[in-house]
Amino acid sequence: MERISRQDWIAIIVLALLAVLPPLFLSMGQSFWMDLATRLVILAIAASSLNLVLGYGGLVSFGHAAFVGLGAYAVGIPAHHWLYGGMDPIATTNGFVQIGLAVGVCALFALVTGLICLRTRGVYFIMITMAFAQMVYYGIVSIEEYGGDDGLVIDSRSEFPGISLDDPLQLYLLAWASLVVVVVLVRMIVNSRFGMVLKGGKGNEQRMATLGFNIYAYRLVAYVISGAICGYAGALLGNFTTFISPEMMDWGRSGELMFMVILGGAATLAGPILGATVFIVLEEALSSWTVYWHLPFGLFLILVVLYVRGGLTGLLSGKKED
């Protein structure tokens, strides 16, 4: 039995709270909070996938919003063709096909771009991941059939036997269960031999190379896993919002995902979840208070980066990161 660390406990407590509180709000007729919690949990999955490469791998990807967007379009495009005809092989509302498509397309995109991105280091990597995400953004914008700039309405959510995603509670529980699976998966990965090599590459790439590890290959696999999970989050987000647009993969969205990870604490299990929670709640509170909410929000971001090392998890577990 592996030791359960203080950080794991934080993750367990946060996940438990997320399991209990939102359905409670819903039973009290507060569907608004349910919506907020659904978005939060889905973004926490995306942030966790980013954390795998950014936090544990030290690979600062500034393009993860592209995976979210591709995942969402992998739900929207088949549903669109199912309704309006054309592209028969993928025209379906079958959830398994759509999710499979989302995960597959994102894994492939991560593989192809990762092959090029991972040849670069440091600031090159940041900028090239951002540029590839922007490439997808402009690509989708230029396809008029899928709404271009205006986006696409998903008329029919993914269909699974036995569950209906049209029911907010069932959608939420699916998202929550997915988050639990992703957190467990990330924990298994980072504690495995594979994860040790990945973390070793973050600490000292040259040493790992000298020890005989092909760190490039390890990073590529981590990048593909991360992209696939993020695409899954995108598929859930598409089902939640039922409206998708290229704006979902704007570089600002990528920046927000990075901020969630750093805010909550990079390279910690609970970090992305805590970060997403504080991010969503703060965004909601500030934007209902003033239209100029980006001003305090931007200042908050700057102050967090300047003064909160190790993120919220670092503060809670009393351990300094780095």
Partner: peptide, 26 residues
């Protein structure tokens, strides 16, 4: 931020964009 990593620089200047754009809006 000079002594920090590129990640911190990217995030802080991202926050700065939000601040400047909102100020311009105001």
């Amino acid at each position: 931020l000079y002594a920090r990593g590129h990640l911190d620089q990217v995030l802080a200047t991202f926050g700065l964009i939000l601040v400047f754009e909102t100020l311009a809006h105001m």
